[in-house]
């Protein structure tokens, strides 16, 4: 899932400077699951903006809304009436949702309340780790279920660098060295010989490096 985090209040205030009527829109998808932009978070941020306005001595009107998903046209269109008279739309969706709302309401001033962080999953309550780098050419079958592109800080394909120590990464010693994990899986499956295989450089043209991606499904067009 997409994991995101709320921006600092200070940054949000700066984006809303001079805007009086604000609509905060939450999303029932990923950001609800990672407790960043769901209905609860919309309520809290709305209240913070009201309290903040009082403190700053400015007039501010905050309206709240949450849609099932901000990346689906039919759900976003439901906001049409609410959007009409607003000076700013503060979207609490991931970067995709923010842009979707902006595309559907091109005259609206849409700003992001969240920083979209990664495609990841919770490893325990309150901790989400990046798992997928969206490289466009999945090679997980070659690495026993652990992605070296997403989970190795240097996206190495031929084993750990010299900075791997005690199974941890040199960049952040609280994070596992992905290659240590792959190594352990190889031992478990009795496939240590796979390590000697020389893997050639990745074709990054499938990743974001090749330009913004477009996926087509002809059968439904």
């Amino acid at each position: 899932m997409i994991v995101a985090e709320r921006k600092s209040y200070e940054k949000i205030e700066r984006m809303l400077k001079g805007k009086r009527k604000i609509l905060i829109v939450g999303c029932g998808g990923c950001v609800t699951v990672c407790l960043a932009g769901g209905q609860k978070e919309v309520e809290i941020l709305a209240e913070m903006l009201r309290l903040g306005a009082k403190k700053l001595g400015i007039a501010r009107e905050v309206t709240e809304a949450t849609v099932e998903r901000q990346c689906e046209r039919e759900f976003v269109l439901q906001l049409a009436d609410k959007v009409k008279d607003k000076d700013a739309i503060l979207s609490m969706a991931c970067g995709v949702g923010v842009q979707f709302v902006s595309d559907i309401f091109p005259d609206a001033y849409v700003v992001p309340a969240l920083d979209t962080k990664c495609a990841g999953a919770p490893i325990e309550r309150g901790i989400w780790n990046e798992k997928c780098a969206l490289c466009g050419d999945c090679i997980l079958d070659e690495f026993y279920g652990i992605c070296p592109i997403a989970r190795c800080a240097k996206n190495l394909l031929n084993g750990p660098c010299g900075g791997s120590q005690n199974g941890k990464c040199e960049v952040d010693r609280t994070k596992d060295c992905a290659w240590q994990l792959i190594y352990e899986r190889m031992i478990k499956f009795g496939r240590l010989d796979d390590l000697i295989k020389l893997r050639m450089p990745k074709d990054w043209s499938y990743a974001r490096d090749g330009g913004p991606r477009r996926v087509l499904k002809e059968s439904v067009r």
């Binding site: 750990p160 791997s164 120590q165 199974g167 190594y183 240590l192 390590l195 000697i196 020389l198």
Partner: peptide, 19 residues
């Protein structure tokens, strides 16, 4: 780097470099 982990892998990695 004979001193990084996993130790056994360091020699395999060396062989990879030779290959």
């Amino acid at each position: 780097n004979p001193f990084a982990d996993p130790f056994e892998f360091r020699v395999i990695r060396l062989e990879k470099k030779a290959n």
